[in-house]
Every structure is written in structure tokens, then in C-alpha cells.
């Protein structure tokens, strides 16, 4: 049985979770191709035009694996942390419904509903439903999900040592190093959602450009989870979205971190949660006098535009240091 997984949104953050889950169930995984112009165009075609670019891309990726898989995995991810008021962006929660509404000719969707706040009974019911779809016993599904969670935990630990997801997964097999850097490199915290930071097409090669400029990059995944929880205490109220919380907390962690020269917040044009996240980070950075720049991505973001902005920001930091 072939399960199609779209390479976006939850893919980057939870890749090992999904992979282990389906391997454990004995399914074959087909991941959609890397984001490209073609995928984006398809996404624009299927999604409403008020949607943000990641959601459009998701539609494109679903289309991309549509004819190569028996099932398409569109999880309804509600809560993976067990924190009470925390879920995901409403667009994540309604993803299955969006895809179902606008893309008629698809293989059946695997809409696994994951809410770890729920009681055992409700979860069991969900395993049963999924089991029915796949023709497997609920016990087997529950077992696979538990081992998947373990895999995710060890992956997280690896991430906090400073590797981006692609590399962290490779590291599960072999050890790869971080590229060599100048002796006192400029250190930037690049904060934003994993599906923006690690998708080279959407962010117009932002990360690679920074690497090439000889900059040390820190990302939200590199902050140990315990530190994030400590930072959370300083905020008036937790945000309601898992990824957003991670971004805000890690940004505050980095603002406090004396190694960090500046903060880059990467956001999608029109992103709802980020209107709050961005303001929180901006106010905090302003108070502490840490340089901060917002980079907003949309369908028309070009490599040249990003490069100019990054260069201007880095030059400003060099100037502050007295290197220019």
C-alpha cells in the first residue's frame, strides 16, 4: 500500500513521526517532489486566493502525489504536546475539509485526527476508524503511533544540536558536520515556521544565502525544549498555536542570548498567527535593542529581493560591530 505524504506544513517538523508510523504499519511512503513553480501553480489553482502561500503549496503537493499513491495523508493535527489550550493554526485544523472541498479527483484521504489531550477512549476510536480505512487492527495502529512518537522525540534531541531537518534525518544514519565558519561569525537567529525555513523554494533560498555569506544560523528547533518552557513563563498568555509558541519562545530565548547579533523573522504574507507573533517579537526586540528584521514571503518573492534585504541587514550588523 502506498501512502502519499505532501512535502510541506507538518512534513518538516514531524517527518520522522509520519515515516516511522507508516513503516511500522508496513506501508510504502511516497513523498511529493520538492516544491517547484509547477507545484505552486497547481496550489494557486486549487486553493482560495485568500489563503496564505503554505496552504496553497499544500494543495499543490497533494496534487503532485495524487496519481502516485493509494492514500493521501492529510492529518488533522490538533494537539501533539498535551498542553491544554494549544492547537495549530485553524487552517491546519481545517486542512482536510479544504482539500476535500476543492480537489475532487483524489485517492481517499487518510485524515488521521491527532489530539493528545483526548481521553484514551476517544483516541482508541480514532485508531479504529483509521484501521478500518487501511484494513488493519486498531491495536496495530496504536502501537505504530507510539513508536512513531518515540522516533520523534529522538529526532528532536538531534535537532537541538543544530542541524536542519534534512540533515538531522541523514544523521540518524551517518554523522555530518556543520560547514566551517569564520572565527567570529555573525550569528543570526532565523525564526519562523519549519515549512517556511526549510523549504528552499518558498523562502527563495534564504538559508543557503545566509550560509554562503558565512553566517552562523540558529533556528527555533535548536533551542532545547526545557528552555522554551522557561521562556513561556515570561509571556502574558500562551499563544494557541504550537508552531507559533515555538517561534515566539525561541525568539525570546535568542533575544536574551548574547551570542546572537540579530533576529530574522520569516513569515508568510497574510499569515494570521504571525500578526501576533511578529508584534510580540518586535516589541521584545525593541526593548532589548536587538536588531530585528521581518521577511515576508509570498508567491512573488524573488531571489534578488531577498538577497538585497539580507545583505542590507548583515551590513548593518557588521557596521554595528565595527567590522565595516
Amino acid at each position: 500500500m502506498k501512502i502519499g505524504i505532501p512535502r510541506t506544513l507538518t512534513y518538516y517538523a514531524y517527518k520522522p513521526l509520519w515515516e516511522t508510523f507508516f513503516q511500522d504499519l508496513g506501508c510504502e511512503i511516497v513523498v511529493s517532489e520538492k516544491t517547484s513553480k509547477g507545484i505552486l501553480d497547481k496550489g494557486v489553482e486549487f486553493a482560495v486566493n485568500d489563503a496564505c502561500i503554505p496552504i496553497k503549496l499544500f494543495h499543490g503537493h497533494v496534487h503532485n502525489i495524487g496519481n502516485r499513491a493509494d492514500f493521501i495523508f492529510v492529518p488533522r493535527l490538533i494537539n501533539l504536546t498535551g498542553e491544554k489550550t494549544v492547537t495549530y493554526c485553524p487552517k491546519f485544523l481545517g486542512l482536510t475539509d479544504m482539500v476535500r472541498a476543492s480537489m475532487p479527483d483524489l485517492p481517499p484521504l487518510l485524515d488521521f485526527r491527532i489530539d493528545l489531550r483526548e481521553k484514551w477512549k476517544a483516541r482508541r476510536r480514532e485508531y479504529e476508524r483509521l484501521g478500518c480505512l487501511l484494513g488493519m487492527s486498531p491495536g496495530r495502529i496504536g502501537h505504530a503511533f507510539r513508536s512513531a512518537k518515540r522516533a520523534l522525540r529522538s529526532y528532536r534531541r538531534r535537532l537541538s544540536h543544530g542541524n536542519d531537518p534534512e540533515r538531522a534525518v541523514a544523521e540518524l544514519r551517518e554523522h555530518t558536520g556543520i560547514p566551517s565558519l569564520p572565527s567570529r561569525p555573525i550569528t543570526l537567529a532565523v525564526v519562523g515556521y519549519p515549512y517556511l525555513l526549510y523549504d528552499d523554494f518558498v523562502n527563495a533560498g534564504l538559508m543557503t544565502k545566509l550560509y554562503n555569506m558565512g553566517i552562523r544560523i540558529l533556528t527555533p528547533e535548536m533551542v532545547p525544549e526545557r528552555q522554551l518552557l522557561i521562556k513561556a513563563k515570561g509571556l502574558p498568555k500562551d499563544l494557541f498555536w504550537t508552531f507559533s509558541n515555538q517561534v515566539v519562545r525561541s525568539a525570546i530565548y535568542y533575544i536574551d542570548d548574547s551570542r546572537v547579533d540579530g533576529i530574522i523573522h520569516v513569515t508568510a504574507f497574510g499569515c494570521g498567527p504571525d500578526s501576533m507573533v511578529g508584534k510580540l517579537i518586535e516589541l521584545e526586540a525593541k526593548q532589548r535593542g536587538v536588531p530585528y528584521v521581518l521577511i515576508s514571503l509570498d508567491e512573488h518573492t524573488g531571489e534578488a529581493g531577498i538577497l538585497t534585504r539580507l545583505e542590507a541587514f548583515v551590513d548593518m550588523l557588521r557596521y554595528r560591530r565595527g567590522e565595516l
Binding site: 485568500d50 493554526c89 472541498a101 476543492s102 497574510g270 494570521g272
Partner: peptide, 16 residues
């Protein structure tokens, strides 16, 4: 409102 997340989902569903 333009950037309203829940209503963007319902907008797509309303088309169906």
C-alpha cells in the same frame, strides 16, 4: 476579514 484564518477555510468549503 481578509486574513481571518477560520473564515478562509470556510470560504473554500462554501464553494463546494
Amino acid at each position: 476579514p481578509v486574513t481571518c484564518m477560520p473564515e478562509i477555510v470556510s470560504r473554500q468549503v462554501l464553494e463546494k
